[in-house]
Each structure stands twice: as structure tokens, then as C-alpha cells.
């Protein structure tokens, strides 16, 4: 197996304040890696650093053998990094269809737009029904699906999902997890940030616990589930 994404000693942050300190992370082709940990300890910032929304202060980021730590966000997208951000960040005054089509904005993706749109509608049939509706009028679960569908429209070589179950009703969370499971089964490389550590651990090949800006624990999902003391120490559960 080869690493699709490889971070070595990465630090980043906002202003004078470092949020991520010396993080190294490898995500192997076709696996699902999960980042868990308490709120406000840098999970989202780490994803934003990989996609270029937050600048890398030190360390290197390699993606499919290419160094990307100095790239702008639009360049990392073109390189194949798909980031579905926390809180969806839909385009509120565009319809569902327009939002999805924005995902295929770059020329390569635009060529396959209609084919990908069918795939997204097959995976998320609700979006087909809602395609003419304005994004600002959707329910929370529908918004999340548009966010994921919009990411899938871009294709890409890694899918980074930031808290896909955040703020949703339990039944909707089940639907979202089913979607993630089928994306994993189709062989996609996925890097996911989750609040609900035990639930994602059941699915994750590798799990990293981010505490205060650096990794406190790394291992397989099943190891994590059989380490109650880790869960108790860091997640208070």
C-alpha cells in the first residue's frame, strides 16, 4: 500500500497562535482514516491546513508524491484533495443543482459533470428530488448531503469530511453513515474528522487522537475500541 497523503512535522495556526504542532500523518490508498479528539484541539484546522485554507508554518505535506504545502486551496483541489468543510458552507442562494455543479467547477471535473451527477443522485436520491430548491431552504440533513455530493462532483483522490454527523438527528446520522460506508466500500480514500469517536472507530482503518494540537494516540479502529482508558482520558466517555 502506498500513502496518498503524507504529512511530516506539520505546524500551522492563526496569527501568532499555533493550533497544530508537529503533526505527522499518513493516509494509505483506499483506507478510511479518522481524526478524533476534544473540540477546539485542531481537528478542523488540520483539514484546513491540508486543503490550503490555513497556511503551513513548518513541515511538509505530500500528496501522491507531490509536495503541496505551499499551494493555494484552488490548487490543492486541482491536485485532487476534496474537502467537505464543517457546517457544509453551501452557496445559500444557489439551487441544489447549482451547488452540485459548482463542485465540478474545474475543467477536468466539468468534462465528467453529467456522469458524476448521475452517480451522486444514485448515492443520494433525495438530492434529485430537491435539485431545484434553494440551498438556504433545506433541512440540516439535506444540507449535509448537498455538501458531500458537491464534494463528490469534483472527483479527486482523497475525500476529507469534517464532522459529517454534527448537529443532525440520530436517524439522519444513520443515513449519513450509510453513505460514508458505501463510499468506503467503493474504494475511496477518506480522511474524516468526527466528534463521535466510538462510532467512527467501528468503520476506521486507522484512528488518530488529536489533543492540544498534536497526536496523543494512533492505532487501528479496533485497538481504539478495546482501549477504554484512552477513551476515558481524552474523550471523557
Amino acid at each position: 500500500m502506498s500513502a496518498v497523503l503524507d504529512l511530516a512535522g506539520v505546524s500551522s495556526g492563526y496569527g501568532h497562535h499555533l493550533v497544530i504542532r508537529d503533526v505527522s500523518l499518513r493516509v494509505e490508498e483506499g483506507t478510511l482514516a479518522a481524526l478524533v479528539g476534544p473540540n477546539g484541539h485542531g481537528k478542523t484546522t488540520l483539514l484546513r491546513t491540508i486543503s490550503g485554507l490555513v497556511r503551513v508554518r513548518s513541515g511538509t505535506v505530500s500528496f501522491r508524491g507531490r509536495r503541496i504545502e505551499t499551494l493555494r486551496p484552488d490548487e490543492t483541489v486541482a491536485a485532487g484533495i476534496i474537502h467537505v468543510p464543517q457546517g457544509d458552507l453551501l452557496f445559500p442562494d444557489m439551487t441544489v443543482l447549482e451547488n452540485l455543479r459548482m463542485g465540478a467547477y474545474l475543467p477536468d471535473a466539468a468534462q465528467r459533470e453529467s456522469q458524476r451527477l448521475e452517480e451522486v443522485f444514485a448515492l443520494l436520491p433525495k438530492l434529485k428530488e430537491r435539485q431545484a430548491q434553494l440551498a438556504s431552504t433545506l433541512s440540516g440533513g439535506e444540507r449535509r448531503m448537498v455538501g458531500i455530493g458537491r464534494g463528490l462532483m469534483a472527483g479527486g483522490n482523497i475525500l476529507m469530511l469534517d464532522e459529517p454527523s454534527l448537529g443532525l438527528a440520530p436517524i439522519v446520522i444513520d443515513q449519513i453513515y450509510a453513505v460514508i460506508q458505501s463510499l468506503k466500500s467503493s474504494g475511496r480514500t477518506i480522511l474524516i474528522v468526527e466528534e463521535n469517536a466510538t462510532r467512527i472507530a467501528e468503520m476506521a482503518d486507522v484512528l488518530h487522537l488529536l489533543d492540544n494540537g498534536s497526536f496523543a494516540w494512533s492505532g487501528s479502529g479496533s485497538d481504539f475500541l478495546s482501549s477504554p482508558e484512552i477513551i476515558a482520558t481524552y474523550l471523557g466517555a
Binding site: 486543503s51 485554507l53 458552507l89 453551501l90 445559500p92 455543479r101 459548482m102 469534483a154
Partner: peptide, 23 residues
């Protein structure tokens, strides 16, 4: 395409960048 990029940027700057738009 240019117009879509302008609208996307205006509606959400971060999301626009994550679509590959050079803001």
C-alpha cells in the same frame, strides 16, 4: 463560468476556494 465563480465567491468565500476557484 466566470459569473458562477463570482457568485460562489460572494456567497461563501471558503467554499468557493474549495471548489477550485482562485478567489
Amino acid at each position: 463560468r466566470m459569473g458562477r465563480a463570482i457568485r460562489a465567491t460572494a456567497q461563501n468565500r471558503d467554499a468557493a476556494q474549495l471548489m477550485g476557484i482562485r478567489i
